[in-house]
Computed example of a mutant assay.
Amino acid sequence: MSGRYPGREAIARKGRLGAHRWLILRRLSQTVFLGLFLLGPWAGIWWVKGNLAGSMTLDLLPLTDPLVLLQGLVAGHWPEMTALVGAALVVAAYLLVGGRAYCSWVCPVNPVTDAAHWLHVRLGLPKGWQPKASTRLWLLGTVLAVSALTGTTAWELVNPVTMLQRGIAFGMGAGWTLIGAVFLFDLLVARRGWCGRLCPVGAFYGLLGRTSLVRVSATRRADCDDCMDCFAVCPEMAVITPALRGQTADTPIILSGDCTNCGRCIDVCDRDVFRFTHRFDTRPAPGRDAAPPSPAGRDRAA
């Protein structure tokens, strides 16, 4: 983008709070999830035991990262029934709300990469090297292959999510090196490169979320004025085009599994083009008072 703050018109119309509603809710969600795990080591309140790889809530509710379970299976380790139940519950939840909702609503590394992107834009740095979108799928396959060959849950040895969570609870130590590397990679090497191009966890949840129920829809795409703010803030901007630029007969639903359901496109759109809905709500709404495309709109893109 050209230095213009995306969402400026939305702030003017909705107010600063309204134009950041979903962002604020995401930060609250990430804080709550992380805070529940920190209550034990910090305050001795063990409502939740474990970490995001596997946990037990109130000694009743097991939750297991299905990617961790899959690594264990290919490594030749048959899990306990609680782990199987926990993974089934997580899979069911993300089939409902969208697989990569994990990335934007739960993952504690997301604020790190968001901060790197914010600074990248403010400094006006070039887009940089962009790995192919399929790279994270290859890395996911590599993780499973290494787990099978070594008999370990290989990714957990270097997973930034696990290291960050453990580090906040017990002290980062050398973990800061890895988290700092993720930040610098997104800042200086590849804009939104870690979550969007490399992270195998995001790749796994993207595959899981292809059939999920909750979706973002460009329901009022006829009202779009080509300001390009949604593209500027979207961590996976390629997912917007088919829904927003489609023909009348095409679905306005963003169906890509790469969509993180972060809601930022909803926040920054002053014309309320986007909203959360379900995957079967496929009819675009008629335009209300669509303005002609802004002459400078295309220049605002990231």
Rank of each mutant, 00 (worst) to 15 (best):
L157N: 09
S147Y: 14
F185V: 01
P160N: 07
P200I: 11
V161A: 04
T177I: 13
V143S: 14
G196M: 00
S147L: 14
V158W: 05
G180S: 10
T142W: 15
Q165Y: 02
L198Q: 08
R197C: 09
L144N: 14
P200V: 10
L149S: 14
V146I: 15
N159G: 03
G193F: 09
G209S: 09
G209K: 02
G180A: 09
T153N: 08
G193P: 03
R197K: 15
L184W: 10
W194C: 00
W176H: 01
T142N: 10
L144E: 11
L208I: 10
L198W: 11
M172D: 06
G141S: 12
V158M: 11
I168H: 12
L213P: 01
R191M: 12
E156P: 02
R166L: 07
L164N: 01
D186R: 11
V201Q: 06
L213A: 08
W194A: 05
A169D: 05
V161W: 01
A145T: 12
L188P: 13
D186A: 07
R166V: 01
M163T: 03
L187I: 02
T153W: 02
G196A: 12
R197A: 07
L140V: 00
G206K: 05
G209R: 01
T142R: 13
T150N: 15
E156F: 06
L144G: 15
M172C: 03
G209N: 06
L164Y: 07
C195W: 00
G209W: 01
W176L: 05
